[in-house]
């Protein structure tokens, strides 16, 4: 792990010219994506020509992207650019919005998530989600984490469940802070702790992909730093897609970055490349703060 991080850090600091010189790393066939931590990864999620309509209004235009497994992909872009909308397509949360229609294909591990044979409940168990505002249930900390395993019948006994709860909280690096008060309400935690509780809750169902919709926008810088550290650890086991408004955050946590603008996916590539030598003028304008 530490070695990987160091490797990544050195790559992050590479001058743009070097990166361009090694650009063969970044133009892979669509089913494999190479991330800066050197190893080629297969694409976990493949989206092709995804469009989203809210009633008559089209919010997303023909988005195609490959999301590599066990790494962090960041979606950036100005407000209303469709990045959250696209994120919510990946576990079909848009189904819960009245009048929302999605076209195009999205495949998770090669199987179509819009196929009639696919159970959306199962999909959401495989593709977990963390929301913008921490939204713990009005239940105890324990019950919050146990909720998912309970509804999916993942624990055979009370001890099993305790084990899942404990390990999820540990993975979300919240265990030490709450282990003595598991039965106090989750709503009594601080904002950053609540968000980590929501991450633990998502981890508890052992998903393969975790979608994070601006997970730090309601948090202070210290809590944000802890969540970012956590994301960095989680990428060993999970495929993470994060929507963020903060370009620094995208640069810090992600291996690949996708820039959305006005419902279009403008550009997508390795994070360091996007930030140092973007291929599109609009991307450059956005990351240099000229608009957005």
């Amino acid at each position: 792990m530490t070695e990987n991080t160091r490797l990544e850090a050195t790559e992050m600091n590479m001058p743009a010219a070097t990166i361009l010189a090694r650009s063969d790393l970044y133009h892979m066939p669509s089913t494999t994506v190479r991330t800066p931590d050197a190893e080629p990864r297969s694409a976990k999620v493949i989206a092709r020509n995804v469009s989203v309509f809210y009633g008559p209004k089209q919010a997303l235009f023909d988005v195609s992207i490959d999301i590599p497994e066990k790494s962090v992909t960041a979606f950036i872009g100005p407000s209303g650019c469709g990045k959250s909308t696209f994120l919510r397509c990946l576990n079909r949360m848009n189904d819960t919005i009245d009048g929302c229609r999605v076209s195009g294909q999205i495949a998770l591990d090669g199987s179509d998530i819009f196929a009639p044979s696919l159970d959306v409940v199962e999909l959401r168990a495989r593709v977990g989600m963390v929301f913008q505002k921490p939204n713990p249930f009005p239940k105890s900390i324990y019950e919050n984490v146990a909720y998912g395993p309970r509804i999916h019948g993942l624990a055979r006994s009370k001890a099993d469940l305790d084990e899942i709860v404990a390990s999820s909280l540990q993975k979300a690096s919240l265990w030490n802070e709450v282990k003595d008060r598991l039965h106090e309400p989750g709503t009594g935690l601080s904002g950053g702790q609540q968000q980590r509780l929501c991450i633990a809750r998502a981890i508890a169902v052992s998903p393969e992909v975790i979608l994070m919709d601006e997970p730090c926008s309601a948090l202070d810088p210290i809590a944000t730093a802890r969540i970012e550290e956590l994301i960095d650890e989680l990428k060993q086991n999970f495929t993470i897609v994060i929507v963020t408004h903060s370009m620094q955050q995208a640069a810090r946590v992600s291996q690949r970055t996708a820039f959305f603008h006005l419902g279009n996916l403008v550009e997508e590539g390795p994070t360091d490349l996007i930030f140092t030598s973007p291929g599109e003028k609009r991307t450059q304008d956005y990351i240099t703060g000229r608009f957005g």
Binding site: R124, R126, F131, P138
Partner: peptide
């Protein structure tokens, strides 16, 4: 609340 629960696959 509803989204959180649905997002966990409930």
């Amino acid at each position: 609340m509803r989204d959180g629960s649905l997002g966990l696959g409930a």
